[in-house]
Amino acid sequence: MEQPVVALTVAGSDSGGGAGVQADLKAFAMCGVFGASVFTALTAQNTMGVKGIHAVPRDFVAAQLDAVLADLPVGAVKTGMLASASTVELVAEYAPRLPNLVVDPVLVASSGDRLFTDSVEQAYLTALFPHAAVITPNMREASVLTGREVSTVDDMRAAAERLGETGAKCVVVKGGHLSDSSAVDVVWRDGTVDLVEAPWVETRNNHGTGCTFAAVTAARLARGADPKSAIFGAKAYVHEAIRASADWRLGGGHGPLGWKPMP
C-alpha cells in the first residue's frame, strides 16, 4: 500500500456521527486520504437536531493546529463549523500554512435559523475567504453572506460572483434547497460560471451532505486534482452516497449518507 496523502478537517463534532468531523474523516478515508482533525466545538446532536454546542477555547484550537502542522505533511484543509468569530480569525491567521483550503461556512441550521452573530459572518468575509481555494456555502448561507435572497439558479449565480469578490479563488453555491427535479450547484472560478447537476434523490437521509461535499473536494485537491475536477468529483461522490443510504432508517429524523470507496 502506497503512503497516503494527508488532509485535515477543522470542524465541530457530531455525536450522531452523520456530519462534522466524523463525516469528514469517513469521506477522507473513502477517497484514500489519511485524515487528521482539529475540533472547534463539541455538539450534542442526533438525526433529530442539535441539542447543544460547546465551543473549544481558541487557545486549544491553536494547540491542535500546531500539533498537526508540526508533524504531518498536510496536503489540504477543510473547515466546517468554526463556532465563533475568534476561531474564524484564528484559522485565517494560520491560513498561510494551510494548503488547498476549502471553507464550508456553517452559518445556518437546517431549520433555516442563523447559528451565529453577524461578527462570525463578517469574519468569514473579510478574514478567511480571501485565503480560500474553494468556499462552499449553501443557498441559505449565501443569502446571509451577501445580504440578498438566494432562491433561484440566477440568484445563486449572482451570489457566487459577489462572493468571488472576497478573494476566494473558487466559489460553489450549493443548490440542495432548490425545489426542482435535479440538484444544481453553481461554480464560479476566474470569472466564469459552470453548473454541475445530479438527479434528485427522494430520501430523508441528507444529514452531512455539505460536510461530505467539502471534505471530498479537499481530499481530491490533496491528491493533486485541479479545483474543477475536485468539485465535480465531489458532486458525483455525494450523489452516490445519498443513493446508497436512500432507504436507511437510522434514527427518527434526517439520517446520514452512505459511502463507497472512490478511486
Rank of each mutant, 00 (worst) to 15 (best):
M1F: 14
E2I: 13
P4K: 00
P4F: 06
A7H: 05
A7G: 08
T9E: 12
V10C: 12
A11S: 09
A11T: 08
A11N: 07
G16F: 05
G17Y: 02
G17P: 08
V21G: 03
V21W: 04
L25I: 02
L25V: 02
A27Y: 13
F34W: 07
A36M: 09
S37P: 07
V38C: 09
V38S: 06
T40Q: 11
L42K: 03
V50Q: 06
I53A: 05
H54Q: 13
H54T: 15
A55I: 12
D59L: 09
A63C: 03
Q64Y: 10
D66K: 05
V68S: 04
V68H: 03
A76S: 11
M81W: 02
A83R: 06
A85G: 13
A85I: 01
T87A: 07
T87N: 08
V88F: 14
V88K: 01
A92Q: 05
E93Q: 10
Y94K: 11
P96V: 01
R97D: 09
N100K: 08
V102S: 08
L107K: 03
V108G: 12
A109F: 04
A109R: 13
S110H: 03
G112A: 14
R114L: 12
S119H: 01
V120G: 01
E121S: 05
Q122K: 01
T136P: 12
L145E: 05
L145K: 10
E149R: 14
T152H: 06
D154A: 12
D155H: 11
D155I: 10
R157Q: 06
A158L: 07
A159H: 10
A160F: 10
G164C: 08
E165Y: 08
E165V: 07
A168Y: 10
V173F: 12
V173S: 13
S181H: 01
A183T: 14
V184H: 00
D185Y: 07
V193G: 10
A198S: 07
A198W: 00
V201W: 02
V201S: 03
N206G: 07
N206C: 00
G208Y: 10
G210Q: 06
G210A: 11
C211G: 13
A214E: 06
A215D: 05
T217S: 13
A219N: 09
A219Q: 09
L221S: 10
A222I: 03
A225F: 11
D226C: 11
P227L: 15
I231Y: 00
I231T: 04
A236H: 13
V238T: 10
V238L: 14
V238I: 15
R243F: 03
A244P: 05
A244T: 06
S245G: 00
W248R: 12
W248K: 04
R249P: 00
L250C: 04
K260E: 12
K260M: 09
P261M: 00
P261T: 00
